[in-house]
Amino acid sequence: MSESAERSPVDIDDYVTIQRFLYAEMALLDRRAYQEWFALLTDDIHYRVTTVSARPAQDETSRFAIIDEDAQTLKMRVDQISDPNLTHAENPPTLTQRLVSNVEAYYGERNGVFETTSSILLYANRSGSPKTGLYGGERQDVLIRNSSGIKIAERTVNLAQTILPDSTLSLLL
């Protein structure tokens, strides 16, 4: 992704379109409409989630992936949590609310391509448990608009996390 200084922010109409898309997309995940969500990804989706290894402040941040999927492997992940017979982690389902804010959107180098950053906070309460996981971080997306609407071509979720607090992450962000 190029430096923001060189990129031009999208106009207000495009901004509202993008913001609506990002909200609607998160609502699909909160409603557990995982297959509908998957349909919003391009065939060459690159989906990553990273966490941090804590380093001294004078060192560069050490980020590494905990999820790094293409369409095929992400589909397996989606299929697993979509089918009540194939998941224990999401059966009973985790109760979630995803908050998206701080949306910034720029025109990409090609026509119809947007580069966005947004803040995400995933509130995740395991059913029947007092445990609530909070996963916060910054997302960097590449969105593509064509005649049928907007799709996600790349998503990187940089979690502000060194140790996952609540077991493993079976949810999508």
Binding site: I66, I67, T73, M76, H88, S167, T168, L169, S170
Partner: peptide, 24 residues
């Protein structure tokens, strides 16, 4: 190797996620 390794057995692994809830 790295991608395949943690797809299955990492902090969000498709095997690990079901192990952990049942162990808990």
């Amino acid at each position: 190797v790295l991608r395949n390794g943690f797809h299955n057995f990492g902090a969000a692994g498709v095997f690990e996620q079901d192990d952990m809830v049942l162990w808990e």
